[in-house]
Design a binder for these strands. Structure first.
Length: 529
RNA sequence: GUCUCCAUCGUCUAGUGGUCAGGACAUCGGGUUUUCAUCCCGGUAACAGGGGUUCGACUCCCCUUGGAGAUGCCA
């Protein structure tokens, strides 16, 4: 059977970086295997799943080049009938029951099957004894076994298990008397509605069973059935719960491999049971480690820079972000880091995915982005800069030849497109001056005199080239008794207002004679001292 | 509390019993006809702790510590 994977986000308008990483890994896996990558829009939260939010989701995927197969995508809200039908089926089979605990009406609850052996991966662990607190009566019913454990301090600690977790259950009192034995009563209690309440019990004895599966990333996984509870699948208001909807949709879409975040490992055990009880073969699972913030904590709504759109807005290239994200929690096994899509598709495998969570490193992303920008063809680079500049009020109608000259000069040092905002001095008549910098660079009397002498000297320079300017500046510095190069930074401050940039003579050539002279003569660099 | 998962430089990672524990980002120092960046060269920096198993553990097992997730009507 060919591989079919899916990305199933709930569209909220803000696609989280962790979610999109899951999408990327699914996409990579599908492309590597030559399978299908499907999209499912889990739009059950009507409040947040607006048409705009869905459009944002699709735009982000397109931006990152995450093309999906079998359009249009599956919309979860359109599947409610299937979800509910599945719930009815479970109810009819005795794999679910109605319960009113906690809700207004009756919710529907999936029962962990007592004959759990029919679930692939369920194994018998062996007999165990669990101490219980005598102050809290033990209850045994179709909803499970209720009891209180004993904490380290000897106080009652909340406990409980699904009925299937306690095969061959026997309940004992302090004097050793057997208060209850489940053997032979499974049917009457499980589906018949019988229940018993047993005060004074101190010990539970039963055969422990566990459900296991092989995780494509983490390896063998196991969970004792007695640490599981039955699962609500339909709310008391009649709406399907995530667990049901998710599994039913995966069956509908014929998903063979589920690759998702670590936070779902716990759900996997019950999802496998749901698949089997709905007559489907459980898919293979692979759980990706989470991406955490700089503090090592999971990203929350409070963390500003965790949305994909934010990275796009700050001027990261989609290929750079894509590449960087593949490196979070995965590596090709050799020292390669900067890799093309084709190389990533070729090298990707779930077995090489990390088990532990990864921290986002903005500096490394930025560095990688700089590498991608450096490789951009000149025309492409210029186009992106123009687009970016158009967002700034002084960058809206820039001269084309000036723009090209600036781009050529600055290309190698741009790491993020948002930084073109610092190019103001190339385009305006008078730049904004860094007061502290000017005070530092242009306070010396000899420097000031040399700078003043420069406008006359420079006025005579034709053509106004970097080489010619350099000669003149060197001469001016020498005439003022300044060492070679000592006038360079003061000149930069006086002409550009900043202390950083490309070579000063090249920069001045691009700025041009007229504006250079005007800035020198305006003496803002001095007035602001 | 209980259950599940996790643990190599500051960060991302390589490593599947024998390595001077490698690379990248960051950082520090030097160079590229003395800004910043690029580029080049070099340095600092890690196996969470304790027990085992073994001739020999980063690597296998156990415990502790720390972190994350789950614990019936969020997804």
């Amino acid at each position: 059977m060919s591989v079919r994977v899916r990305f199933a986000p709930s569209p909220t308008g803000h696609v989280h970086i962790g979610n999109i990483r899951a999408a990327i890994f699914n996409w990579l896996f599908a492309r590597h295997e030559g399978g299908a990558f499907l999209l499912r829009v889990e739009d059950t939260d009507l409040e947040r799943s607006t048409p705009e939010a869905i459009a944002t989701l699709l735009a982000v995927m397109e931006w990152l080049g995450l093309d999906f197969d079998e359009k249009p995508p599956l919309y979860q809200t359109a599947q409610i009938k299937r979800h509910l039908a599945a719930a009815e089926r479970l109810l009819a089979q005795g794999d679910a029951y109605r319960d009113s605990k906690g809700g207004d009406g009756e919710a529907m609850v999936f029962r962990i099957p007592f004959d759990a052996e029919r679930i692939p991966g369920v194994v018998e662990v062996g007999p165990v004894d669990v101490p219980v607190h005598p102050d809290v009566p033990v209850t045994v019913s179709g909803k499970g076994v209720g009891y209180a454990g004993v904490s380290a301090k000897g106080t009652p600690a909340p406990g409980g298990a699904c009925l299937a977790g306690c095969k061959d259950l026997q309940v004992f009192a302090a004097d050793g008397a057997c208060l209850f034995s489940l053997a032979g009563k499974e049917e009457a209690i499980g589906r018949g509605g019988d229940s018993v309440t047993l005060p004074g019990a101190v010990r539970l004895h039963f055969t422990r069973r566990a459900i296991t599966y092989h995780d494509l990333v983490k390896g063998e996984m196991s969970k004792p059935l007695d640490s599981m509870r039955d699962v609500v699948i339909v709310r008391s208001d009649g709406s399907p719960v995530f667990h049901l909807a998710n599994v039913v949709d995966d069956i509908t879409q014929g998903i063979t491999h589920i690759i998702r975040g670590d936070d779902h490992v716990e759900n996997t055990f019950r999802h496998i049971m749901l698949f089997v009880c709905l007559g489907a073969t459980p898919p293979a699972y692979g759980h990706l480690p989470m991406i955490v913030n700089a503090a090592g904590k999971p990203y929350s709504k409070r963390d500003g820079d965790a949305f994909v759109g934010d990275f796009r807005d700050r001027g990261f290239l989609p290929d750079a972000l894509f590449n960087y994200l593949t490196l979070l929690g995965w590596s090709p096994g050799d020292d390669r880091e900067k890799m093309t899509r084709a190389e990533l598709v070729e090298a990707f495998s779930l077995g090489r995915v990390q088990h532990a969570s990864a921290q986002m490193d903005l500096q490394k992303l930025t560095n990688l982005n700089g590498q991608y920008i450096a490789e951009l063809p000149e025309e492409d680079f210029i186009a992106r800069c123009r687009e970016r500049l158009a967002e700034l009020d002084w960058g809206r109608a820039v001269d084309e030849s000036l723009l090209r000259a600036v781009c050529q000069l600055m290309h190698s040092r741009l790491k993020v497109f948002a930084d073109v905002a610092q190019w103001q001095y190339f385009f305006v008549a008078l730049p904004e001056y860094d007061v502290k910098l000017c005070a530092k660079q242009c306070s010396d009397a000899a420097v000031v005199a040399a700078l003043r002498s420069l406008s006359a000297r420079l006025a005579a320079v034709t053509p106004f080239t970097a080489v010619a300017v350099e000669e003149v500046v060197a001469a001016a510095a020498a005439a003022a008794g300044l060492g070679p190069g000592k006038l360079n930074q003061p000149l930069r401050a006086a002409v550009t207002g900043t202390g950083i940039g490309a070579g000063i003579f090249e920069t001045i050539e691009v700025i041009g004679k007229a504006r250079t002279l005007a800035r020198l003569q305006a003496e803002q660099w001095l007035a602001l001292k």
